[in-house]
Design a protein around this nucleic acid. Structure first.
Length: 418
RNA sequence: GGGAAGAUGCCGGAGUGGUCAAUCGGAGCAGACUGUAAAUCUGCCGCCUUAGGGCUACGUAGGUUCAAAUCCUACUCUUCCCA
């Protein structure tokens, strides 16, 4: 059944570039002993550059899960070592260096986030590794002699990713990044029978570095493919809202906001996102996204499916209920985003502008003022265009258990008194 | 090591003594239209403000001047050319 993996990924639009498709299909066809270490391994690395993972990381994560479902062993690598260096790919300047303590903390959070996407009740359970474990103890000299010797500087410089960086200052540290990632693949190939590496489309040259290294050192063929970056109809990277990333972590992006983000995707993006971010069958997706079908029904389903994967069915249902309540009128508001305000504030006659800034609905008073002046604010579904409006206790006595603030068309917040 | 150029707001990129909180484009926010979509059009887009103004900003630190993003000095960083 591993043999179906590749075509499954292709049909879902999850493969951008492959190094050797035919040989990979052939390798996956090879029967193996289900009880031993012999599951062919597939790995993808995640560098701890931020405290949480984003929507964009969901593609490779689910890709590993799809591999698991097809009888491969998923290997999730955390870049404890590579995170200290920073991948120069696609960047015009160096990443700010994180501290070692930050990276340790991030990795802890990553491993908590990631577990839910895999199965542990099967023989091919996932493996979690940290590349600091093998890169950390290695001396520079050993590394240079064992790994560095297989890379020429000309080759590294010819990579487009490095070329563009050359003008802006590429450091020695960062140029070593590809070597580290290549070494990871070699190590996993030796230890865990890992035959395949996946990554984002921008990772192509890093992935090839690994397959090259394995061929040179082990005289074995290894495989890699990249996955398309998920983008919207304008080709913008998916997963940013209001300039902020959409995180997989419920404490940074609430399940409601997560749901809303997907619910608001543009029409053209829905079918592709459906294939890439859900396990819904292709036949059903076709039906949902047919030209005659209701695009809003498709979006609701898509948003629910992905939210359920990331936050669980219960949270997804709550997000739907909240959305229906806010947009459809009536229904259950209990899951809408909430913020709290001290009673004393209202008693002392706080005005609307101060309140918006205080609870974080607007980042500053000036912006709150502009919002109100621009007719963009509704209090309990009534337009409020009076900048000096003073809140009263009865404003907070709505059914939802507080005051319903609507900013613009679809940004709802309940302010409750404590 | 020597020489040249450069560092501006979230990003790109104008500005070269006052009229600069800084042209323009992108991103973002809001309004109209709509389907919680796209496209389009309109307004906003440093912070505070009792709306008169105040404060902080043009790599960092000093200086010249009534007045500096703009001139001078030192420093930091980057790019290019030569070695």
């Amino acid at each position: 059944m591993t043999s179906d993996f590749f075509s499954h990924m292709q049909k879902r639009g999850l493969i951008a570039q492959v190094n050797d498709a035919e040989a990979l299909i052939e390798a996956l066809r090879k029967p193996h002993d289900n009880k031993s270490e012999a599951f062919p391994g597939v790995y993808c690395g995640f560098d701890p550059t931020a405290k949480s993972l984003t929507l964009g990381h969901l593609v490779p994560l689910l890709g590993l899960r799809r591999a698991q479902d097809h009888g491969m062993r998923p290997i999730i690598l955390f870049g404890g070592a590579t995170g200290l260096i920073g991948d120069p790919t696609g960047r015009t300047d160096m990443r700010p260096m994180s501290t070692k303590e930050d990276i340790t903390r991030y990795i802890e959070n990553f491993s908590n986030l990631v577990r839910r996407y895999f199965r542990f009740d099967v023989p091919n359970t996932p493996i979690f590794v940290n590349n600091l474990d093998w890169i950390g103890p290695m001396s520079w000299l050993d590394f240079a002699r064992e790994i560095g010797v297989h890379f020429t500087v000309a080759k590294l410089l010819s990579a487009d990713v490095n070329k563009s960086r050359l003008e802006h200052g590429l450091t020695f540290m960062e140029m070593g990044y590809q070597l580290l990632q290549s070494y990871d693949f070699l190590e996993l190939s030796r230890k865990h029978n890992c035959i395949l590496q996946t990554g984002g489309n921008d990772q192509w040259s890093n992935l090839l570095g690994g397959t090259d290294l394995i061929r040179r050192v082990e005289h074995k063929q290894a495989f890699c493919f990249t996955q398309p970056l998920i983008v919207d109809s304008q080709g913008r990277k998916l997963g940013k809202t209001s300039g902020n990333a959409v995180w997989l972590d419920s404490s940074t992006t609430s399940p409601y906001d997560f749901y809303q983000y997907l619910r608001n995707l543009s029409d053209e993006t829905v079918e592709q996102t459906f294939r890439q971010l859900t396990f819904v069958s292709l036949a059903e997706i076709r039906e949902l996204c047919a030209p005659t079908a209701n695009p809003n029904a498709a979006k609701e389903r898509l948003a629910w499916e992905v939210t359920a994967l990331v936050h669980g069915k219960e949270e997804a249902d709550k997000a739907v209920a909240a959305a229906h309540a806010l947009f459809g009128g009536g229904g259950d508001l209990s899951s809408a985003p909430r913020v709290q305000l001290g009673k004393g504030e209202v008693e002392s006659g706080v005005d609307i502008v101060t309140l918006l800034a205080k609870v974080g609905i607007s980042p500053s008073k000036g912006e709150a003022r502009r919002l109100v002046q621009g007719n963009g604010l509704l209090i309990n579904n009534e337009k409020c265009s009076d900048v000096g409006y003073k809140l009263r206790m009865q404003d907070f006595a709505q059914e939802c258990g507080g005051m319903l603030i609507r900013k613009g068309k679809k940004d709802y917040t309940i302010v409750e008194l404590v």
